[in-house]
Design a protein around this nucleic acid. Sequence first.
DNA 1: TCCTTTCACTACCGATCTGTATCGATAGTT
DNA 2: AACTATCGATACAGATCGGTAGTGAAAGGA
Lengths: 193, 193
Amino acid sequence: MTPAEPKMTRSQRVRSKALRVASDLFYANGVRAVGMDQIVDISGIAKTTIYRHFPTKDMLIEAFLQAEDAEFWHQWDQAVSGADAGIGELEALCRWIGDRVRRDGYRGCPQINVAAEFADYDHPARAVARSHKAEMLRRLTSICARTGVSNPSVLALQISLLLDGAFMSDGRLNGFDAPAVLIQAVRRIVASG
Amino acid sequence: MTPAEPKMTRSQRVRSKALRVASDLFYANGVRAVGMDQIVDISGIAKTTIYRHFPTKDMLIEAFLQAEDAEFWHQWDQAVSGADAGIGELEALCRWIGDRVRRDGYRGCPQINVAAEFADYDHPARAVARSHKAEMLRRLTSICARTGVSNPSVLALQISLLLDGAFMSDGRLNGFDAPAVLIQAVRRIVASG
DNA sequence: TCCTTTCACTACCGATCTGTATCGATAGTT
DNA sequence: AACTATCGATACAGATCGGTAGTGAAAGGA
């Protein structure tokens, strides 16, 4: 994830490292629980420098979610690549997500978590979260349409709710074969469509 | 919700009001965003008094979630009362939840939101949230068993993920007939079980 | 009516928060 | 080697955080 490409300038390298350290702390502890001083201590980057790249903490949080968004779709594309169009893509996504939510240190969808922390609907980070979920719904609708069902938008909405529930299942899936549970549910939702 | 019963002592009335004001602020703004001073200002109750009833802010948050939990199951019981056992109960719950998530000021499940704010797995508030979700899974399993399916625990898990997704759908259900969307999904999940 | 408990109010504590000012060191470029 | 932009480090500002101490008023039971 965001490997240090040697083509970057020093400024870009420093910015990248600051964002990476901040993102790890934000995700593991929650954005409000992490202070800028903590990011300074762990990254070894001066506070002045961080504030030159990210003028406010809110903008740093926004950049965190945007990077998570990009990384998410990168992995999404990898998961569906090679899968049969339609139901095959859905199953591939279920396998990917089912594994993802049981990884060590998994603490839910960062977009959802940040949205829960900020009540202000117009907070820039919440705008990123909304567009993330809108994009997910768009992609699921496109896949559902490929399965040939008559009402792909409703089906995609139902599947998106199921997957969001899986994201914040908080360990409830640990006692089960998570991918299988998700695949079975998705199959049944799509089946009689 | 928690009407001021005249049988309470003065101490109980004050405690109840403090918890009610704190709960409203916590839910609307997020627990970390609300300071104790804010609760003091809006409730008109002295900070010393609040701290006598709730020794720490964490315990106040815990009490908030416990009260939300009790209120949730109260409404749950009302929603399923009179419904036909099994699928009828599930449909009644879908109608209740579908309406609930589109109410003004709805900002997701408080248990999920608070869990997202605290990374510490052992935080007392997160213990309340986990037992809340465990109870929900238990009740759904019981209902699914009443429908006569062969694997009620897996079905209940799938339905609980769908409903949790609905809780934090963040307006995605607003353009749809939310109860109908949920009922259709639940029916299909249960159908071929 | 008296007496005890509980209350509201004010002021305060140390810690932590986001964000800024200053300055000397360092890296990349010419 | 010299110049310029960016860096790390320290110190600080102003606000807010959770939580405590002390005091006088008010409520409730006898």
